[in-house]
Amino acid sequence: MKFQLYLIYVYTILIVSCKGNSQDKTPPAPQKEIQPKEVISKDGFKRAYFASGCFWCVEAIYENTKGVKEAISGYSGGHTKNPTYESSNTGRTGHAEAVEVIYNPKIISFEKLIDIYFATQNPTQVNGQGPDHGSQYRSIIFYQNKEQKDIIDQKKTALSKKINRKIAAEILPFQKFWIAEDYHQDYEKKHPYNRYILNVSVPRLKKLQNKFPDLVKKRH
């Protein structure tokens, strides 16, 4: 009798458990789409944000582009506050080394900045550029509004068709840019004979000079 009661008990538990599991299969509510944050123009200058390998390289490329007032190295695209070079290099913050480009839209357009972006990197390399590997070196183009996103989408699709390869760059809504440590700023300019600068940054800068000679600032 006790054994029969035990079987009834176990059977009841199994039925209740199965019902509970079936309820757990309800699909989760869709996550709210992250909306981009737009940076307000100041004194006629706009800001654009790019990640493509080491920020020393990207900063040097845009610093030498006509119409760009300044390029600043930093971090973006992650989920932590106040990222540092050390923390971002762990790959656990989600941040990539990025650059803030402050430009005059009357001299150079956002579209042309995108052209320069793709032309000065290996667009098919995933999670890095050249010798730099890891999610902190991945390629990202950040958009601040629908117009920018449409431009990026069109450029990326056109390039993919042209080379018949998948383009690695992510397209993400801009949220926040964190300025990097002082010693990272203007690194190519301050350390022209650094081995990394000579072997990695300079070749990327030469791509700008070769492909867009009319857009290169005269260096003093």
Rank of each mutant, 00 (worst) to 15 (best):
F3A: 01
F3E: 01
Y6Q: 03
Y9Q: 02
Y9W: 01
Y11E: 07
T12W: 00
I15D: 01
V16G: 01
S17Y: 03
N21K: 00
T26E: 12
F45H: 12
A48W: 06
G53I: 07
W56S: 09
E59S: 08
T65E: 11
G74P: 09
G78T: 03
P83D: 06
Y85H: 12
E86H: 06
R92P: 13
R92L: 15
A98D: 05
A98C: 09
E100F: 04
N104Y: 02
K106G: 01
K106I: 04
I108R: 04
S109I: 03
F110E: 05
E111A: 09
Y117K: 01
A119M: 06
T124V: 14
Y137M: 13
I140S: 07
I141Q: 07
I141E: 05
Y143L: 13
Y143Q: 09
N145Q: 12
K146G: 15
I151V: 15
I151L: 14
K155L: 11
K156T: 08
A158T: 06
K162W: 01
K162I: 02
R165G: 00
A169N: 02
E170C: 03
I171Y: 00
L172I: 04
L172H: 01
W178F: 10
I179R: 02
A180Y: 01
Y183H: 05
H184M: 10
Q185K: 08
K189T: 09
K189W: 04
K189C: 05
Y193H: 12
N194Q: 12
I197Y: 08
L198M: 14
V200H: 13
S201Q: 07
V202H: 14
V202R: 14
R204N: 14
K206Q: 15
K206G: 12
L208P: 09
N210S: 15
N210E: 15
N210T: 13
H220S: 15
